[in-house]
Design a protein around this nucleic acid. Structure first.
Length: 462
RNA sequence: UCCCGGGUAGCUCAGCCGGCAGAGCAGGUGGCUGUUAACCACCCUGUCGGGGGUUCGAAUCCCUCCCCGGGAGCCA
């Protein structure tokens, strides 16, 4: 089919020439002697206006061209005499591939709420909003690879099915081939997992970090970019049960290198969104007023504030704001605290580092003060934590001590400890929740609106 | 999981101190020679989330379950 994409057709190159376009009808406006169709094909935020005069051969087909119908149109691209669009197409032929019964098609030429569109996830990408979001998602995914590939990072593929249940990163989904109605039992009444597919319990991964570490300790700089699963019963606008995570890991790197990488990475992504998704960003800004291209430009151009956890606590304790949760050294920052720092104090993203060891994971490197670890979180306005990272504990004895303290059984972690037994070296990395990034850059309020098929408690319909 | 707020036409919502179920949009029909979520006229649309209770009478009051949204916790 020799069709031209709408993103390509809207230029002088095709002016006055015969062209063929395909797409879905957004709206139809009929008068006595002519009609207008607004066509979208997903290639761009923009639509193409089709003009059909009653004398044109395709005019009878208009009957079938309701909102949602998939059509092919042939005609001449012209400059539009009216305001609102530079180009339009004068149609000679119309072919209808698939009609959309206006009595039944849920998307009509009126505004729909995001909540309603969530119930028709298979049709919502046809809307302006979701077209913009999913094109931006693609721009960002591509930019992730561009950033790391340009810096010589190796994209590694860590397993989706894993046996490690001890990362402390949340509840896990079990993977089994048992008949759940009748699993093999043990004498003590439990389930005998030695008879299961893998010979022991298996789960969907909650993080590729541990595996990324051994790849970094051989390939140097690596990153993962893949699906991640958490079985937490989280019902919020910023959690998914299935999401995509990006986890770079660098050998011979410390926390400072890690923070620098995180910041460069985030600013690069903002820049790419602006470069390649300008129309999408403007559309979202106009309709939702959440984040503006100017704000993203500012993010891309200015260095982020870095603040130690201890300083952050001091800042919060000096605040006039009354917090629901107490602020004291040693306890984790609550959402309200993070929001105060990003929205009120810094008015932008901030990287908080050197957290108390007791509120962070076992693998984070113990600082010389003995009470903090080389961890960092990047917090952004409205969303909160978007990146979490650390320098990893590379000293065997210290790591073993922290494992003992945390009560995590070590028998399945020997391979992880081996990395400290043989050629250990300082290394660091972080995790970025891809949907939170897309959420931040698009300004979508609910994370379920930045992934085509959201997975969340009780939500698996599409 | 907890705390709030909701569930009434295809969509968004009003009606809620009990008394005939409504509006806007969408959709249909007709009109209109340049429309922009067109405009004008007319028309259609209901398991008032499910179940139980109080009452002469329940969308409205009570109980219960389900679902949705926002916030919190957990986190990315």
């Amino acid at each position: 089919m020799e069709r031209i994409l709408i993103k390509d057709i809207l230029s002088d190159a095709y002016l006055g020439k015969p062209v063929t376009v395909c797409g879905w009808v957004r709206s139809k406006r009929e008068s006595k002697g002519f009609a207008f169709l607004v066509l979208s094909d997903g290639s761009t935020q923009e639509t193409l206006q089709l003009v059909i005069n009653s004398g044109a051969p395709g005019f009878q087909q208009l009957l079938h061209c309701n909102t949602g119908a998939a059509i092919l149109a042939k005609g001449i691209l012209k400059e539009s005499p009216a305001k609102g669009q530079k180009f339009e197409m004068e149609v000679s032929e119309l072919e209808v591939f698939g009609e959309a019964d206006p009595e039944k098609y849920p998307l009509q030429k009126k505004g729909h709420t995001l909540e309603f569109l969530r119930e028709i996830a298979h049709l919502r990408p046809r809307t302006n909003t979701f077209g913009a979001v999913f094109r931006l998602r693609n721009i960002l995914a591509s930019a992730v690879h561009e950033f790391f590939q340009d810096r010589g990072f190796v994209w590694v593929h860590t397993p989706v099915i894993t046996s490690s249940d001890c990362e402390g990163a949340g509840e896990l989904f079990s993977v089994t081939s048992f008949d759940l109605e009748n699993p093999p039992g043990k004498d003590d009444g439990g389930i005998d997992f030695s008879q299961d597919f893998f010979g022991r319990r298996a789960f969907l991964t909650v993080s590729g970090q541990l595996e990324a570490e051994f790849l970094a300790m051989s390939l140097g700089n690596v990153y993962t970019f893949g699906p991640t699963f958490r079985a937490e019963n989280s019902n919020t606008t910023r959690h998914l049960s299935e999401f995509w995570m990006i986890e770079p890991e660098m050998a011979f790197a410390d926390l400072k290198d890690d923070m620098r990488l995180a910041e460069d990475f985030f600013r690069f992504l903002c820049r790419k969104a602006l470069e390649k998704g300008e129309k999408e960003l403007s559309f979202l800004e106009n309709h939702y007023k959440r984040i503006s291209p100017e704000e993203l430009r500012k993010l891309a151009d200015t260095s982020f504030v870095h603040m130690s956890y201890t300083d952050a606590i001091k800042e919060l304790q000096g605040a006039k704001e009354r917090f629901e949760f107490p602020v004291e050294w040693g306890s984790d920052l609550q959402s309200e605290h993070e929001r105060y720092l990003t929205d009120k104090v810094i008015k932008g993203p901030v990287i908080v580092f050197d957290y108390p060891k007791d509120i962070k994971a076992f693998y984070m490197r113990l600082n010389d003060d003995g009470r903090t670890v080389a961890a960092m979180d990047m917090l952004v306005p409205k969303i909160g934590e978007i990146i979490g990272g650390s320098q990893r504990e590379e000293r065997l004895s210290v790591l073993e001590e922290r494992l003992r303290h945390s009560g995590i059984p070590v028998e399945h972690l020997q391979w992880y400890l081996d990395l400290r037994r043989f050629g250990s070296a300082p290394h660091a990395g972080f995790g970025l929740g891809f949907e939170r990034l897309v959420q931040y850059i698009t300004g979508m309020v609910n994370i379920r609106d930045v992934i085509p098929c959201p997975r969340a408690p009780r939500e698996i319909g599409f």
